[in-house]
Write a protein that binds this DNA or RNA. Structure first.
Lengths: 329, 329
DNA sequence: CTGTTAGCGCTTTCAT
DNA sequence: ATGAAAGCGCTAACAG
């Protein structure tokens, strides 16, 4: 059942059917009624691909992320999806694993499908999008990066001030009397580097010495936290507080400290990052930095919608994170 | 830059260009080389919409779920996305919130876009897909339902035996000496009903009395667990164990019990459901039922791929869950 | 092996 | 207000 069939049934031309389909004004009420009746009777629905061939758009955007199973990414993807679907768009989700080749593959597919825009979620894409092949795929496409910054012609970014986020944690710990603080760094992304940077500058601002020794490099996730805790346990004198770049890492550490007989926060105070659900599930509840994933998502949508509409009065955005005090510090 | 431009540059016809584009055999190596060179030189990439108009497919499927932020759904969506993207498809994600009208809106869009198939994730869709409008959108589309069953012509389902899942928990508790067991039911989906059913039958199989009194109805999530715990605390004689239909609910209860001074599992044993990350984050670690979301996702992919390929030797699948014993029971 | 041509289903001028 | 016809970029049947 296509527009020709409908036109035939209605005894009208396809142009007129197209007009009522698209709610154009220049159609007599009578013929409009008639055609609408046929449309309903045959339960006609237009072919979006054919439409897309004309308009060169399938009203689809893509959220390109590392792994949608990570709650922090899921929240941003969710927010973006909800906003765009309410605007009549569908959203493709791409799990790149943060890998260059995967990302390349996705970008190729997306550009062939004439996607209307893409939201890059995560600062991993800062580096990945330097790849010349990826640049050619993205150079004519509206792009917004969540928590990252890529160098592309039609691109804006929504950054969370991660440096400030970690500063908030350090400031709070300092106020609580802590002087000998460790920072646990799990990843090596731009975001992780900004966090480290924030640690140094906050420590310095309080006149505390912070050297490379205060930075504990570890692996990602729960396991990384366990490793970090063991490092801290074997370090003397013991740090009185540890700032983590990820909730899950912090929790891995807490569990390890507890097994070693330490009390949190009395023996060692702990802060996490992301303000995930995990913070209220673990014991003691985790003090963390809320980096506002939903707000980031909303801002991304705003910028992307503007770019798609061809508006030029955009600007990159920086969002201030917030300290959420709970029991662990 | 379209196929005509390339043909012109190469001094060939569009058919020949199309042939090399689609790796057809009937092209002289010489001309193939020549055209491939031009293709690379101009960085040509074919327009998938135009292709789609011919093939009536955009090589896209959709994962329709309640809320991608729920880890259990995220895992299934992730698995499906990874498998399909490796087959050259893109995947759309739809967060319906389990609402009929939202689902309707999505299905309309999806059917207009001539999607190749859909994976429905969650037993909420059992009811939702009885809606006649939704039926018209889905009736010609390959559909696979994860953990649900819908009545549609081209549809199969991958079910987890949730009844058995809860039985596993009850059996284990019985073996540990528990006789007075409560079941905490948070939702009212088909899946939740199957779980309740499993509770009754397992209790019965051990000769334990289980009446409506043993079923504690509560709200969803962490808060529901707190409410359930308060119900249990005020009940006398106290249940020695409680089986939960969701990890998060179980954890809300554990926290409440602990605040009331109870020891888990000594004063009351607790089991959860889903075997989420939460199980190892809370204290004590939560004994739970692994309902294999990744495997469910893989099976969905298998069935959907077969249906898209027109294969007819498919069948719905039932997956057996597994008990994961940890500290809470 | 290569080229010509007719669609795919729709939107959009341009006439009438 | 309505219709005829061109065209979006590609694939595929048909000729040669």
């Amino acid at each position: 059942m296509n527009i020709y069939d409908i036109a035939k049934k209605a005894g009208m031309s396809i142009s007129t059917v197209s007009r009522v389909l698209n709610h154009k004004t220049n159609v007599t009420p009578t013929t409009r009624k008639k055609i609408e009746a046929i449309l309903k009777e045959y339960n006609y629905s237009p072919n979006a691909i054919a439409r897309g061939l004309v308009s060169n758009s399938m009203e689809t955007i893509a959220v390109v992320t590392v792994d949608i199973r990570v709650p922090h990414y899921a929240k941003q993807a969710y927010t973006v999806e909800q906003a765009f679907s309410s605007l009549g768009y569908n959203v493709l989700v791409c799990n790149t694993g943060g890998k260059l080749n995967e990302t390349k593959k996705y970008m190729k597919m997306l550009s062939e499908k004439q996607i209307d825009g893409v939201v890059l979620v995560g600062s991993v894409f800062n580096d990945i999008c330097k790849d010349p092949e990826i640049v050619t795929y993205l150079k004519n496409l509206p792009v917004v990066t969540a928590n990252g910054k890529v160098n592309l012609p039609l691109s804006y970014s929504v950054l969370v001030d991660d440096s400030m986020g970690i500063s908030l944690a350090v400031d709070y710990l300092y106020k609580k009397g802590h002087r000998n603080i460790a920072y646990v760094k799990d990843l090596n992304t731009d975001s992780a580097n900004r966090k480290e940077q924030g640690f140094y500058s906050a420590m310095k601002s309080h006149g505390c010495t912070a050297t490379e020794e205060n930075i504990l490099k570890t692996s990602y996730g729960f396991k990384g936290g366990q490793e970090a805790a063991n490092l801290i346990l074997s370090h003397s004198p013991r740090y009185s507080a540890a700032v983590f770049g990820e909730d899950l890492t912090a929790i891995g550490a807490i569990k390890t400290f507890q097994k070693a007989g330490l009390q949190i926060p009395d023996d060692i105070a702990i802060t996490g990052y992301n303000d995930s659900e995990y913070t209220t599930i673990c014991s003691p509840e985790l003090t963390s930095i809320d980096n506002k994933p939903e707000l980031v998502g909303q801002c991304c949508v705003q910028l992307l919608v503007n770019m798609i509409a061809g508006k030029t009065d955009n600007a990159s955005i920086v969002i201030q994170p917030e300290l959420k005090i709970r029991e662990s510090a």
